[in-house]
Amino acid sequence: MTDAIYTAHAHAVGGRNGTAKSDDGHLDVKLAFPKSMGGDGNGTNPEQLFAAGYSACFLGALGLVARNQGVKLGEHSLDAEVDLIKDETSFHVGVRLKLNAPDLDRETAEKLLHAAHEVCPYSKATRGNVQVDLEVA
């Protein structure tokens, strides 16, 4: 990748029952199967990490779109849910993103939500591969 403005580095050991660390030490997590999958739940999991990353990235895209359109977001947040889904051969993920923006009318919030989905790097990476449902709270 020739034009990267930033590259994240992480190292994982042990898969879903292991650890993951970033090279700068800011991320250092124990990984564990959730209780609903038969694990002890004493750690995070890839779906939680993906939900956190996607929601943070999406909020950045939302802020960019709002600024470009001259819209003041006011207080806002995004809830991300990432499902691990069993399919015919293995597993895949599904995503639901819910925007909470009480200072915006529903029409404006929906327009911004869909515009952010067009520019968010996570949305671009998942497009055509992952079902992403968008909702305004």
Rank of each mutant, 00 (worst) to 15 (best):
T44G: 06
T44S: 15
T44M: 08
N45T: 06
P46K: 12
P46F: 06
E47P: 05
Q48H: 10
Q48P: 00
Q48A: 10
A51C: 07
A51L: 06
A51Q: 08
A51Y: 00
A52H: 00
G53K: 03
G53S: 09
G53H: 08
Y54N: 03
Y54I: 07
S55W: 03
S55F: 02
C57I: 05
C57M: 09
C57F: 00
L59Y: 00
G60Y: 09
G60F: 01
G60K: 06
A61P: 10
A61R: 00
A61T: 08
A61V: 04
L62D: 08
L62N: 01
G63Y: 04
V65P: 06
V65T: 10
V65I: 13
R67I: 02
R67D: 15
R67G: 05
N68H: 11
N68P: 02
N68S: 13
Q69H: 14
G70V: 00
G70N: 09
V71M: 05
V71G: 07
K72L: 11
L73W: 05
G74C: 11
E75G: 06
S77T: 12
S77D: 14
L78R: 03
D79P: 02
A80S: 14
E81L: 12
E81V: 14
V82D: 04
L84R: 05
I85E: 12
K86P: 05
D87N: 15
D87H: 13
D87I: 13
D87M: 07
T89M: 00
S90D: 13
S90C: 01
F91S: 05
V93W: 03
G94L: 06
R96P: 02
R96D: 12
K98H: 10
N100W: 00
A101S: 14
A101V: 05
D103G: 09
D103A: 15
L104M: 01
D105G: 07
D105H: 11
D105T: 08
R106Q: 14
E107T: 13
E107Q: 14
E107D: 15
T108W: 07
T108S: 00
T108K: 09
A109L: 05
A109M: 07
K111S: 11
L113Q: 01
L113G: 03
L113M: 14
H114N: 14
H114D: 09
A116W: 00
H117E: 07
E118H: 11
E118K: 15
V119T: 15
V119P: 02
V119Q: 08
C120V: 12
C120L: 12
C120E: 08
P121S: 05
P121R: 01
P121C: 07
Y122A: 10
